[in-house]
Amino acid sequence: MSLDPEAVRRIARLARLRVDDGQVAQIQGELNGILGWIDQLNEVDVEGVEPLTGGALMAMRLRDDVVTDGDQAEAVLANAPDRDGPFYTVPKVVE
């Protein structure tokens, strides 16, 4: 499978990465190079193989329902690039 310029723009948009028109061709070349190389997996027969999802082969532990966290608005907000009092801020969102 290989990507056309429109697909490159669509992926960049999904990933929220600004891509200028001048960059599209180069990115397209690099991504197609990698995808072409990955295509070697087509050789592998995976008929009937259960996918391996994670690195740990256990069932999930469940934690108790107690409040152990919070009450730290300053620590939560301290790194914000822009804030207003107790809020994070972003450019106005229109729904």
């Binding site: 939560v76 207003d84 809020f87 994070y88 801020t89 450019p91």
Partner: peptide, 15 residues
């Protein structure tokens, strides 16, 4: 939660 009516230019975020 996004609050849209607190500021003319910005939305405020409460997590």
């Amino acid at each position: 939660k996004s609050l849209h009516d607190q500021d003319p230019q910005r939305s405020f975020i409460d997590l």
